[in-house]
Design a protein around this nucleic acid. Structure first.
Lengths: 154, 154
DNA sequence: TAGTGCTGGTCTCTTTTTGAGACCACCACC
DNA sequence: GGTGGTGGTCTCAAAAAGAGACCAGCACTA
């Protein structure tokens, strides 16, 4: 294997020489992260903002359930037995706020509440689904990597 | 708009009548959630297991950065200025453990450490990228939904 | 008519996770 | 001998998550 040089690159310090071809070339590759970080304006970053709402422990699971069909509150509670009622309320509320989930109250006695995906929610779940499928297919590889890592450091 | 009936469905209680066509039809649609919940065996669920590792606040951001090029520890710290050193160490450690990230120490003085994506990591990021692109494209819709929701309840 | 159960929540308390920042050893440079 | 840069760990405070009690309203049952 060729010996890699551990070159001390200067990144993001704002002190780079203006005309350094190495850095220019390097910078041109930073497309994904730039998008994810809104080019340094971290406070108002689109990707980060949206991803944040999906990164909760229960968000993707509830989206998966609602992608199949609408559910009532109590149904979701039974379907996902290890979620606390507090987190179910809260996660559904966040998903509703971000426009992925529609909440409808029916005037039954007692009143029942049905949650369903909006068009935006279905659209988003299309992308999320890719990740879920990947997880399903590659679970063994991840588990194996994890086992190997734990074995190596033991 | 047609009046929706708030039918009290029985789901997951284990008490359903054995031959109820409504429920059978309902059950047949539960493909995505079944995959996500491993059919009730929640403790050892592939999708949940993998998603958990990606749902951290910083995981996807660091994956996005490393998808562009390898970075050294200090570079990542400067690139993502609002991550604490502790969370950077920890998140990289988790990503390494799950097999997405490779960690290589160079015998420089002082020693430098380079982080890069593995093949598994690049594969996973392909799927994650779909979600990132969606977020980029639909950020306005999400922000609008959020604003509308906040306005309605004020 | 009193008890029980179901609805969809909220409230409080404890535990877990995250964040901010001090601290560390090592070495080069001046 | 001070300063700065390397990649961390450690401690302590703040924020988030989880467990479970509690609530009002109504239907059904005894």
């Amino acid at each position: 294997m060729a010996v890699k040089k551990a070159v001390f690159r200067e990144v993001g310090t704002g002190k780079e020489p203006a005309v350094d071809s190495t850095i220019v070339n390097l910078r041109s590759k930073l497309e994904i992260y730039k998008a994810m970080s809104n080019g340094g304006n971290l406070a108002d970053c689109p990707v980060r903002d949206v991803m944040q709402g999906l990164s909760g422990k229960w968000s993707s699971l509830l989206m998966g359930a609602l992608a199949e069909q609408p559910y009532r509150f109590g149904e979701l509670r039974r379907l996902v037995p290890d979620i606390s009622q507090r987190m179910l309320t809260q996660t559904l509320h966040e998903l509703q706020r971000d426009g992925y989930v529609h909440r409808e109250v029916f005037p039954t006695k007692p009143p029942s509440v049905e949650y369903s995906l909006t068009d935006l929610g279905r659209s988003m779940f299309g992308a999320l689904h890719q990740l879920i499928l990947w997880a399903e297919l590659n679970h063994d590889a991840v588990r194996q990597a994890r086992a190997g890592f734990d074995a190596a450091r033991a």
